[in-house]
Design a protein around this nucleic acid. Sequence first.
DNA 1: TTCTATAGTTCAAGACTTCTGAACTATGGT
DNA 2: ACCATAGTTCAGAAGTCTTGAACTATAGAA
Lengths: 114, 114
Amino acid sequence: MRPLVHPSAEEMTVQGILYALSDPVRVRIFTDLMASTCAQNCTAIAKLNSTPMPKSTLSQHFKILREAGLVRSERKGVELQNTPRWDEYGKKFGPMISSIIEAYVKELTAVRRK
Amino acid sequence: MRPLVHPSAEEMTVQGILYALSDPVRVRIFTDLMASTCAQNCTAIAKLNSTPMPKSTLSQHFKILREAGLVRSERKGVELQNTPRWDEYGKKFGPMISSIIEAYVKELTAVRRK
DNA sequence: TTCTATAGTTCAAGACTTCTGAACTATGGT
DNA sequence: ACCATAGTTCAGAAGTCTTGAACTATAGAA
């Protein structure tokens, strides 16, 4: 089985990040990870996400987040522990990612207030 | 022929913006528009873009930028004049869009220096 | 050490999107 | 009225995404 691919900071691209975050399911996964105080496995995150989906689909979404550089996945026993790569993409892309997440969160809370 | 669709500020969504900007051709179009001092027609912008493409494809890309709310297109005689909707999306999304464009520009200049 | 269970990956085929050539609309000039 | 230019529309081809079934990887129990 192909080992998990994590780009170095140099290999991360704006296009890859935007592509990863242009899908609502992936943004949801990513913001849920950001909101967690500790690393989360894939299925735990999937349970938070309201729309259920097959695990093959979930696996692909995590792969895209991982290979964009947004998330690091480390095997811990039988599961993967996922954490946002904060420090690394923060250094590389400045406020871009946090401003995207803020805008998404703002939009969500605006919708809920209705 | 269906008139050009421009969302109001309320109708713009983060997802729509990110989707529009997750394609390298559209980002190129959009940054070229941002860099122009006056409104530009579609084919003028297309000439700046190094990869040539059929006008039907170009038209679709402009449509996506327009319907995300990034660009306003107004008919001026036989052509369309396109301008970024700066004030409107700035108010709505704060620094998100400018931080995305900055990151793209930084990445491009880094590549050119090599 | 084998068996079983759980977590996630891979692959191929069907579903869905995007791209593009050809035909079209809209406008202005001759 | 005709022609030229700028862009749109549409349907089929080309490409991407989703998903069920089969797989790998690990841990714990028998």
